[in-house]
Structure formats: C-alpha cells, structure tokens
Design a binder for these strands. Structure first.
Lengths: 300, 300
DNA sequence: AAGATTGCATAGTTTTATACTATTTAGTCA
DNA sequence: TGACTAAATAGTATAAAACTATGCAATCTT
C-alpha cells in the first residue's frame, strides 16, 4: 500500500525548487499552511525529515530529501505524462485505435478508410484485427477492440451499430459457365449446381438462409473460410459461389477470370455496420473514425 | 497539477489484475464500493472510460486503459521503490551519509571511524566534504551535510554537539631548533620566535587567542591554510608552529623531521565535536555514525 | 536595540475525499 | 422462472485537505 500521494510529492518538489513553503504555495495556487501540513505529514509517514526550516529564510532540503527528490522528480514527470496520455486518449484525435473487421469486409474497405483518416489525422495509429463475427464481438466485449466492421447479422444487443452500407449478394461464376449468358441468375437454377461456400459465420448462415427462404437446398461441393480460396475454386471451374463483398478486379490470384451476376430473387440485403460496445463511451478518435467510415461508404 | 492519485491507480491496476472490482477490493482489504467510486472518479477526471463493466461477470479494461496501464504499472512500481528508499533513509542503517570535517581533523580521525563503521554496516556509503568551520556550518544548515567533525570554537547555537575528545595544543619545532632541548615550552619564550600560523578559522583565532590570554603578541612570519604546508615550513627550519591535531608520524611530506613539545602554560583545551543541525531529526545512520565516532575517540 | 519584516507553524473551521454498510440494479446460469 | 453474481448507488461516518487568522522565532532596518 502506497502511503504518500503524488500531491505531497508535488508540494515537496515545489518547496525545494522555490526554496520556501510560501513560494511553493504561490506557485501551486494553494495556501501556505496547506503545503506546510502536507509536508509535515509526508515526513511523518516516511519517517524522514525532508526540509530544514530556516527562520525567516525559507527552507532547504535535507541531504536525505536531496537523494530522494531525484527519483521524486522522475516519478512526477511520469505521472504528468500519464495524465497527458490519458487526457489525449479521451479527448484528442490522435493516439491509437484498435479496429476489427470481419474478414471479407477488411480488404475491400478498410485500406481506403484508413488512408482517408490518416490524411487528415496523421497522428492516429490504427491497429487492425481480423476475425469471424463471433471472435470480433468477444474482442469488443473484452476491450481488445474499440470498433469493428461487421455484417448486421445476429449481432447481440450490447453493441451500438452505425449503418455503413447495404450490400446485395451476387453470384460468382467461372468465365465459361453456362449461366454466364444470363443477365441475372435465379437461386432455383443454382441449387443443383456445385456450390462453393464461403464457410465463415455469419456468411455461411446468411447464404444457406437465402436458399432456405426459397425452399431450396444448395449442393455444397466445397467450402472454405478464405474468400480468395473460394474465388480460386470458382475460377478453375469447380462450381459457383455466392458472395457479398466484391473485390474490384474480376481475376483470381492465379489469374483465372470470374464473372459476376445478380441474383434474380433480389434476395434480402445485408447491412455492413461499424459496431462498438454500448457500454463503452466513445472517445474522440472513435467518433472521428466513425465519421470517416460513414463518409467513405456514402461516397464510394 | 496532478489530478489523480496513486491510490486510484493502485485500485485500477488491481481491478485489471483480478478482473473484478470485488476481487480488487478483497486483495487490497477495502470495500467494493470504495474501489467502484474511486475508479468512476478517475474515469471522470481523466475523461476516459477505463473499465468495461460486464454484469455479473466482473470488468475488463478498455483498449485505452490497456494502453495506459502499462505506464501506470511502471509508475506504481517507481512509487513503491521511492517509498522503500525513503523508509530506509529514515530507519535503516544503510544508504548514504554526507559527513564534513574541519580540514585539520579529517586526515587524522575520519579514515578509521569510517573503516570501523563499514566493518559493521558495509552498506553505508559515506560522502566526505572538507572545509573551514564556516563553510561546514553553512553546509550543515543547507542540508548538504548531515554531520561534521568540528572544533567547539564559536559554534552557533543551532547545532547539536557531541563531544568526541579534548585536545591540547602543542608546539611543533624543527628538528634542530634550540627549544627542542626543553621538556615543555612556554608561550613567552615562543612569542619572539617566527610563528608559522595555520590560517584557517577557527584555528587562527584559537592560536592567536592563546597568546592574547598571556598578554603576548606572536611574531607571525608565515601563514598557510594547509596543515601539511605549515608542517613543511616548520620542517625546513623557518619557524615553529602551534597545532592541535597531531599526525602520527613526525616527518613532513618532504622528509624533514619534526619535534613536538607541550606548551608549559597548559593552555585551554579544545574540544572536537561531532556536530549536526539541531533542526534536523537524526536518522538511524546518523545515530550509528555518532555512536561509532564516540567509540573511536574513547578507544584511541 | 526596538520595531518592522519575513516566513513557517498552529488553531479553528469548512469543504472535499474516502471509507463503510446496506440496498438496488442488471445481468448470468441452472 | 428463481437463484446467483457482481457492480452501482444511497446514506452516513470519518479522515484528509483546504482555507483564514494568528502565533512565533528568526532576520533585517534604522
């Protein structure tokens, strides 16, 4: 248990610096007796005399105080630094922000949002975490993340959500698939075809749900938790896939061409939201990040 | 002005370590609400939320707290260290002690006192300062020294004195001086002879005072503030000197032989005291040092 | 040497901080 | 649903810290 306070230390240092109790009092805008008793108490609790009182001539530190006050000054400057950091943490648009993103959202949107934000607030450091929806939600709850880009699917009540965009699922076909000729493709046509499923929650549930809504059962041929793997599998003709986030290019990593078609049923749209913990009062950085995210999605 | 306290920080860290407010309370032997309000206030003054409260499941640090608490832990451990240091400073027989000595006393006595002390308390570090009586007194007053070996001559009232020894002045003669034949020498015989005066206060006043008391005027031929210079001047036959502290050997630095004779008038003795500031409460080290000094002078 | 001045300490009082117990609130878990 | 868990709040007592006013013991002034 700590027995003295930063304030006492502050008073002591001020006395030593100004060479008098009254001087310290003036410097710190408190009364002279406040300092006097504070230091007397400090001496009592530490069991060392710290100041030599010269009548009518101020005070000077004892040799012991001289030895202690070096560490004391360090301690105080660390304490000030911590306070400054803390204030910035709450009020300044600078410092660090831990942001998560559902894996399929991250590569398409995050880079640009961060770039825009950095353009205006270059001091912000952003830590990125990707993961499944469940992982991200629990990280938000544990304070490991401050905000996260998520799909508004099965999100718990303790999150505050800001809508960023509504996106529609689409069909991804290999270049030479027969359905490529259609302007749009219906789920009933797709159901018997080999389906390459992006197997991460909530995507899996969302895509299978699309079929269920039409009383259809998809023919799941492959599944992968990696968006790029799914695109690769489709690219080499192993089947079609349903996806929501659309990378700009229509080439896979290994160069195969892909074709995108809308779903005829104009199925239920999905919302991308920026989520954060309801129990967490937003900091200035968080507000700023939110603002930039909204602006980015509105624009592009 | 620091706006938070070490105690608040202590509570916060305990909460984060135990993962709950109640746990921290138990660990620190305070009530749960004490911690709760303390942290709420800390959050308010710093302007950042620090803990996420999970109903019925304790608390976890926000990302901001996570970032701050690293410095916080450092700060606390420094604070503990400082407290430990301070306590030792007052109570333990270890650490540092700044001791002064009048120049003519230092070489004869200090080394052995320090050696004896170090034998029993090897952790004590002793800082030595030599100087004139005035210099030492003002250093004592300024807290630059904790104790000093002084002659009890013209010492101000604000010093506490512990008598170590009473010493008598003696006559120092060159090897071939005519007065060497006497068993003791009277001041009246010395008065016309060339006097080599140790010119440091209070020695100067003391020695000239010896003559004044007998209504004599010494013939001051040379004066020096260095004891060894005075001995050297005597050694090469330039005159006699009066001294109090007697080095063991009777050879000067350049090898000339010296002879010591008592003063016939059995003049007033001088006291060597260990002085410290009355206004300074003695620490354990100081007490220990004093004890060893007294013992040393009693023994040898 | 007397009186003014300086500067810390103490006394008395008020305000604020911290502590406690008891209770409420809002979740989880069976 | 009811039992349980853990933090928040209310109400109150105590301790810490603040202030003003005054005292005291030096130094400085004339």
């Amino acid at each position: 248990m700590i027995q003295y306070s930063l304030r006492q230390l502050e008073y002591l240092v001020a006395c030593i610096d100004t060479g008098s109790v009254a001087g310290a009092a003036q410097k710190l805008n408190v009364s002279q007796p406040s300092i006097s008793v504070s230091i007397t108490k400090l001496e009592a609790t530490l069991g060392v005399q710290l100041l030599i009182r010269h009548h009518a001539q101020g005070v000077s530190p004892t040799a012991a105080a001289e030895r202690l006050v070096q560490s004391g000054r360090n301690l105080l400057s660390h304490a000030y630094e911590l306070q400054r950091q803390a204030h910035l943490e709450g009020e300044a648009i600078s410092g660090e922000l831990c942001v998560g993103s559902f894996i399929t959202i991250a590569p398409s949107y995050l880079p640009r949002v961060i770039k825009n934000l950095k353009g205006v607030h270059p001091e912000i450091q952003i830590q990125l975490r990707e993961g499944t929806q469940d992982q991200l939600v629990s990280k938000l709850r544990d304070g490991l993340l401050e905000m996260a880009f998520l799909y508004d699917e099965d999100l718990p009540e303790d999150l505050r959500k800001v809508e960023l965009a509504t996106v529609s699922p689409y069909v991804l076909l290999p270049r030479h698939h027969p359905l490529v000729k259609r302007k749009s493709v219906s789920l009933s046509e797709l159901a018997p075809e080999p389906f390459i499923l992006l197997d991460v929650q909530p995507s899996r549930r969302y895509f299978t749900g699309l079929f269920e809504a039409e009383d259809l059962t998809p023919n799941i041929a492959y599944s992968s938790s990696s968006l790029e793997t799914v695109r690769g599998l489709v690219g080499c003709g192993l089947g079609y896939s349903l996806l929501v986030t659309r990378p700009k290019g229509d080439l896979t990593y290994d160069g195969a061409a892909l074709v995108v078609r809308p779903i005829k049923e104009m199925s239920r749209k999905s919302r991308i939201v920026l989520a954060s913990l309801n129990a967490l009062r937003p900091t200035q950085i968080m507000k700023s990040f939110e603002e930039f995210s909204v602006a980015h999605f509105k624009a592009g």
